[in-house]
Simulated scan of single mutants.
Amino acid sequence: MTTSFNAPGPASEPVPVRPGRKLGPIADTVGSFHRAWLEPTRERYLASGRTLRELSPCVPLASSKLSELLRGVGHYPRWEVIHSLSAVLDIPSWPLQRLWKQAALDTGKSRDWVDRSAKRGPLATDQSEPPLEHDALRSRLEENYRRYAEAFLSGEALEAAVEGTFDRLWLSFEHALASPDHRRYAWDILRSTVAAKADYRDQWPVLADAAFDTVALRAETSPEGQAAQLTESLELFTAMSRLPPAQLDVMVLRRVCGFTPDKVSDLLGISLAAVRSDERHAERFLEHTIELPPETGGPTP
């Protein structure tokens, strides 16, 4: 599967100089949810100043196997290994375990393997509270994030994407606060998490399911009007899926979710002028592709 969305990168910062061989990069084959817990784990290791040889007895893994784990190569690790690593590096195990489980399923591990592996290792019983700022941000954004994700996902995939977004944000919240705009940082996590679970057709994300719950469709009461609007919406969403990511985000939030430009600006962490510019460029593309239906119904404040 090819996605056009990019996950936010960690903030650059100096790391302690350590003896021994330098840790190699994360393998290109590592998936989004695997990378979601692997990147903050690597960052905690690099910031600790400890060597793989010093860390090895605490995990326990041979330093060569620990290097493979931190690069995402070899067998997918059991939870008992990751939990030991989280304890040494002071990583909250509650969101880490949930991301570990989702990544295991995404790599092809069965639910039985995941359950057995989790039971053999210590449970993530700390259930520590996330930072107060994270909790406040989640309270403000969760429902809006869910509405965006519903344009691409449903069922378990939808729930996993929303939960995974805030788990990833928890593990990297220091980077979010240090970023130029924490709203933009959080949105990039949402986008990449949703993209990792979305269905694709010809390398473009599928939005067709969202046609059943648009503002315009809900405004139609007659069966004939709903059928006509559904046809228009399916055509519109097929064309929308081919927009660049920034324009696609704006159009989903405006046309599918019904949000005002001001609200879109706040959610994306970009200026109102940038929202309007992206919307204008998107509408020009759509006008040359299909006959763009007029907006129906009032936007959500």
Rank of each mutant, 00 (worst) to 15 (best):
T238M: 12
G225Q: 04
A227W: 14
Q226Y: 09
P244R: 06
F237M: 07
S222Y: 13
T238D: 13
G225N: 13
P244Y: 04
S233A: 12
A228Y: 03
P245G: 09
S241D: 08
E224Y: 12
L253Q: 04
S241E: 01
G225W: 06
V250I: 02
Q226I: 09
S222I: 00
E220F: 03
M240L: 14
Q229H: 09
S233I: 05
E220L: 07
A228P: 04
L243F: 09
V252H: 06
E235G: 04
L230V: 13
V250Y: 07
L243E: 06
F237L: 05
L253E: 04
L234W: 04
Q226S: 01
S222K: 13
A228K: 14
V250S: 05
E235K: 03
L230W: 02
L236Y: 02
V252Y: 02
A228R: 14
V252S: 01
F237I: 05
L234F: 10
T221P: 03
G225K: 12
Q229G: 09
L236C: 03
V250K: 11
A228F: 13
L248A: 05
V250G: 09
M240Q: 00
Q229K: 13
T238W: 01
A227H: 12
Q226C: 01
L236K: 03
A219K: 06
S241I: 07
L253A: 08
A239N: 06
D249F: 05
S233N: 04
V250L: 09
S233M: 08
M251W: 12
D249E: 01
A227Y: 07
T221C: 09
L248N: 09
L230C: 13
D249A: 10
S222L: 08
S241C: 01
F237N: 06
F237S: 00
P223R: 01
E235M: 07
A246G: 05
E235T: 12
S233K: 02
A239C: 15
L230Q: 11
E232F: 09
E220Y: 11
Q229V: 04
L253N: 05
A228M: 14
E235Q: 10
E224Q: 01
P244D: 07
P223G: 06
L248F: 11
T221A: 02
A246M: 10
L243N: 11
